[in-house]
């Protein structure tokens, strides 16, 4: 049983962030890559809230507000781009979207 110290929260946040990064690196489906990006954002908000609580300040909590808003806007635009891409290319697999590679 691990005590809920600041270190434990930060380690958990790092772990979640690393899992999201792993997903971004190894997955081939653009939608899942995008979900893993969201996971990384949430992991960073966890670190902010933990710092805010343990230091008795308010700024981290307010920043989480902003991150949530930016994430919502980002998801809307990103998913619209993915849908437009699918309309044009009929695929969202990353290894088939390599027009700019050569």
């Amino acid at each position: 049983m691990i005590a809920p110290t600041l270190n434990a929260y930060l380690a958990l946040s790092v772990l979640l962030f690393a899992l999201g990064l792993l997903g971004v690196l190894i997955r081939r489906n653009t939608l899942v890559v995008f979900m893993c990006l969201e996971l990384m954002l949430v992991a960073s908000t966890l670190a902010l809230v933990a710092f805010s609580r343990f230091n008795g300040t308010m700024d981290g909590n307010v920043f989480v507000f902003f991150i949530l808003t930016v994430a919502a806007a980002e998801v809307a635009v990103g998913l619209a781009i993915i849908v437009a891409l699918f309309r044009k290319r009929q695929t969202i697999q990353i290894d088939q979207l390599n027009t700019l590679k050569n």
């Binding site: 600041l6 809230v49 805010s52 609580r53 343990f54 230091n55 008795g56 300040t57 308010m58 909590n61």
Partner: peptide
């Protein structure tokens, strides 16, 4: 290892 303050003495502003 960051030292974590005593939570009962830190105000829960959130």
């Amino acid at each position: 290892q960051l030292e974590s303050p005593d939570l009962s003495r830190t105000p829960a502003l959130g």
